[in-house]
């Protein structure tokens, strides 16, 4: 053991690190720096206005959209398609996913079909949907619905499969009815898997929305971007892309809020 009176030195520290944390204003600063460099590049002529508009021009295009009230027309049309398609697709997807998770017949019958159709990029089916549902709203909503449906089915039945069997056994041992077990044990138990599925399906829905709006739509963010591209109006094009980015961020934020509320028991 250590002799009394002998000098020592502290044991050298080798823990710590590997824990990245968000640092206050760094994010906005980097964003502003990039926009600032871009603006400077455009003004000095380093970036040709034919290739990339200055951020201030894109902003002006956005302002123009706002003034003329066209923004709300485009956004309204897009959000309506997104909301209807995503909601119906999600509801149907959860219903089918739960059936696959609960019934042997549904599992044997539907799971292989879902697995076969899930990887098809639904954009490839868009022309078919135009033939089936017409060039109007029908084909656009059907595309989004289809794109949302499959990932939701897969997330849902994966979630149902992963519900702790001992909780179901507990429910049975207390004589709970079948519907009580499904509503109070299986569905809440599958929720932690269903909600992240929403993020994926929402992202897919936005991609499909833009694609669908590029065929025969008068209004909609996708239609606006397509038109801008055709006219080589890069400032409007960038403005449209910014709208899409804000749309995606908002959707993500809403889902995160929902998650935090619905899964507050987990924390």
């Amino acid at each position: 053991m250590a002799e009394p009176g002998r000098a020592g030195r502290p044991v050298s520290f080798r823990g710590g690190g590997f824990m990245p944390r968000p640092v206050g204003a760094v994010g906005p600063l980097v964003f502003l720096a990039i926009v600032g460099l871009w603006e400077a590049g455009s003004r000095s002529g380093l970036i040709s206005p034919l290739v990339m508009p200055a951020p201030s021009e894109a902003l002006a295009a956005l302002g123009h959209l706002l003034e003329t009230g066209l923004l709300w027309k485009h956004l309204g049309a897009s959000l309506q398609r997104l909301l209807v398609g995503w909601t119906v697709g999600t509801v149907l997807g959860i219903a089918v996913g739960v059936s696959i998770g609960l019934f042997s017949l549904a599992r044997s019958g539907l799971a292989p079909i879902v697995a076969a159709i899930f990887p098809i990029p639904k954009i490839a089916l868009l022309p078919l949907f135009v033939i089936w549902f017409g060039i109007g709203e029908g084909s656009k909503i059907a595309t989004i619905l289809f794109g949302t449906f499959f990932p939701t089915v897969i997330a849902t039945y994966g979630g149902v499969d992963n519900v702790d069997r001992s909780l179901i056994r507990m429910g049975q041992s207390f004589g709970l009815s079948w519907s009580s077990i499904v509503r109070k044990i299986i569905l809440p138990g599958a929720l932690p898997a269903i909600l992240p599925g929403f993020r994926i399906s929402a992202a897919i829905a936005i991609v499909l929305l833009v694609a669908a709006e590029m065929i025969g739509a008068e209004f909609g963010v996708g239609a606006y971007i397509l038109l801008a591209g055709n006219l080589m109006a890069t400032d409007e094009l960038i403005a449209g892309v910014v709208i899409l980015s804000i749309m995606g961020l908002t959707v993500n934020w809403l889902i995160a809020r929902a998650e935090r509320f619905l899964l507050r028991w987990r924390l």
Binding site: M170, L176, G189, W265
Partner: peptide
């Protein structure tokens, strides 16, 4: 015939009260 399980089998999304109420609700 009522079980008490080794792993407790409480629903994590229900409070203490809610877990007890679960078996009465039906």
């Amino acid at each position: 015939l009522t079980y008490i399980f080794q792993d407790f089998a409480l629903l994590p999304w229900r409070t203490v009260e809610g877990n007890v109420r679960l078996v009465l609700e039906d």
